[in-house]
Amino acid sequence: MKNLTLPGAFEDINFSLHSGEILGITGLLGSGRTELAKALFGETPARSGTIEIKGQPARIRSIQDAIRNRIGYVPEDRLTEGLFLQRSIGSNIVTSTLKSLLNSMGFIDTAQVNNRIADWVNNLHIKTQNVSLPVRSLSGGNQQRVVLSKWLAANPEILILNGPTVGVDVGSKDELHQIIKDLAQHGIGIIVISDDIPELMATCNRIMLMRRGRIDEHLTTRQTDEQALSTKLRQLAV
C-alpha cells in the first residue's frame, strides 16, 4: 500500500501486511478507517496511490477486482451489508463462490453446493439444525460465522474484518477471536478494524491508529498495553 489517497476520506496511507499477520486499525468514527477498508475492497476505490499484492501491482477498481485478487471483506453492518437475513444459511455461505460450483454445462451443481455448505457449517461450528433455515434464525455470533465462511469459501489471501464482533455475545466473541488467529496461522493476512481495545490487543500483531484520514501512529501489541492504547485513543479525540 503506497500513498493511498481518497480526497475527503483519507490521505497518504502507507502500510504493509504480511501473510499470517493480523493488523489492527483503530481510530475514532470518521477517522477514515472504514473508508480505507472499502477502498481496499474496491467498493469506493482510492483516487491515487498503488496497492501491491505479493510485489505485483494490483488494480482494484471494483469489488469484483478485489475478489479476483483474493480479498474478502466482512462489513461493519452485518445485518444490511453482510447478510441476506431472509435467505437460507446455505445460500448465504455460497453467494460469493457460486461460480466455482457450476457443472460443465454452466448450471448449478446442487450436490456440490450442498457439500460446500455442509463443510463450512461443520468447519466453523455454525449451530443450526437445518441450513435451509433463514440466517435470521441464528444468534449474532453464528451469523458472523456465516459471513466469515462466505469469504473463507472464496479462499482469500487477505481478509478485512470491520468490527468482527460487534453485537456478538461474550462467549462467541472469544471463539471468533480464536478463529481469526487460526486463520492467520494458516497464512491469511488479516486486517481487523475495531474500537474494541481488548479485542485488538487479543488478536493483533500490530495496530495502526488513524486520525483525520491519516495514520497517526504504528504500534506493536508487544510495545503497548490496553491502558496505554485507550489513553492514546482518547487523546485522538482532542
Partner: peptide
Amino acid sequence: VQPHPTPTDSSAPRPRL
C-alpha cells in the same frame, strides 16, 4: 478452524439443503 475445510465424512448425518 481450517481455511480449507477437510471434506466432511459423507456417512455422517449432514444438514440438508
